[in-house]
């Protein structure tokens, strides 16, 4: 018994309460009740605190893992490469459309980068985190100890999903920020000419970027829900990750087949680039809403499947 000996222990000796308690010992007092078993019916506040604590633990695990940080770093470099190469070729008169728009305004690079990366790279990054969420714990055997702690199956599922959502928004924010900074450094700032030809102020442009980040983050949250659902069914994380990525690519292929046009609106990737609605004036809220509803439907459906399976699953790993 060497650490934290005198401070905490003599204080609790019956009949030995020091008369001159320092402020710090008074502050440490609330620790004591937790030495005893918790009350049979924990209060709602305490329960929320415990949920938050597990979520923080999950987030810290996710954002300390070199793999997850490397994916964020890789995604952050893509807009830089795009910006630099556009800058080098901007003098060329052949270019037009989106690329010309980027060359003309710093904010447009953000939209270009997001629409390029949202199709595959960003979903892959999110699939890695969400697909690993349950399967990784099961494969490593840590799931049985989390559940015996007891983390609670529904609670753990909720924490895992929220964690994946935070990562999805982190991915989106990193790409957007990297593109924004690159754009501001390499291209002229100022009023933004939208796809519909209208010109809006830079502040308005930034607001539209914020809207886009919200939309893309939600799209990736839908990807995360699908990956988490697959993750609940396996103990092999790479299987859950690959499964999600294959699903996304398969949807992209189906979407490209003209004969299957009828099902295209129901495929997740069809809606990924729906944020170009914010580049019109007025903003095409109908298209945005449709996209968000599709994502919402995928989230509800996938989480229901994940919950139904995970809460009744035998954990034998």
């Amino acid at each position: 018994m060497s650490t934290a000996d005198t401070g905490t222990r003599t204080r609790r000796t019956p009949g030995l309460v020091p008369v001159t308690e320092t402020l710090s010992t008074v502050e440490r007092r609330p620790e004591e009740p937790s030495d005893r078993p918790a009350p049979l019916a924990p209060q709602a506040g305490r329960r929320a605190g415990a949920f938050w604590r597990l979520l923080v633990s999950e987030l810290s695990l996710t954002f300390h893992r070199p793999r997850n940080l490397a994916m964020l770093a890789a995604l952050a470099t893509v807009p830089v490469i795009m910006g630099v190469s556009l800058r080098l070729f901007a003098g060329d008169d052949q270019v037009g459309g989106m690329i010309a728009a980027v060359a003309g305004n710093s904010l447009m690079l953000t939209f270009l980068a997001l629409s390029a990366l949202v199709l595959l790279m960003m979903p892959i990054a999110v699939s890695v985190v969400a697909g690993d969420a349950l399967a990784g714990e099961a494969g490593g055997g840590t799931l049985r100890y989390l559940l015996a702690a007891p983390a609670g199956r529904t609670r753990l599922l909720a924490v895992k999903y929220l964690n994946a959502v935070v990562y999805a928004y982190a991915v989106t924010a990193v790409v957007a920020l990297s593109a924004l900074v690159t754009g501001l450094v390499l291209f002229p700032a100022g009023d933004v000419v939208l796809l519909s030809g209208t010109t809006v102020t830079m502040t308005d442009g930034l607001l539209r970027i914020a809207l886009t980040v919200g939309y893309v983050g939600f799209a990736l949250s839908a990807v995360a829900a699908v990956a988490l659902a697959i993750s609940a069914f396996t103990e092999v994380p790479i299987g859950a990750i690959a499964g999600t990525v294959v699903l996304i690519i398969a949807c992209q292929v189906l979407r490209a087949i003209p004969a299957l046009e009828a099902i295209a609106p129901y495929l997740l990737p069809t809606r990924f680039t729906g944020f170009d609605a914010v580049l019109r004036s007025p903003i095409d809220t109908g298209a945005l809403t449709e996209g968000l509803l599709t994502f919402g439907a995928y989230i509800v459906m996938s989480l229901s499947i994940a919950w139904a399976h995970f809460t009744g699953k035998d954990v034998t790993s």
């Binding site: 620790e31 695990l61 702690a149």
Partner: peptide, 26 residues
């Protein structure tokens, strides 16, 4: 069964966080 990339101490903290009745203060 633990997280190989965490220290022994961090592993224990992780499992403690999963227990809803355990206090982060202690």
């Amino acid at each position: 069964a633990f997280y190989p990339y965490l220290t022994g101490e961090a592993n224990l903290r992780r499992f403690d966080a999963a227990d809803p009745t355990a206090s982060g203060a202690t």
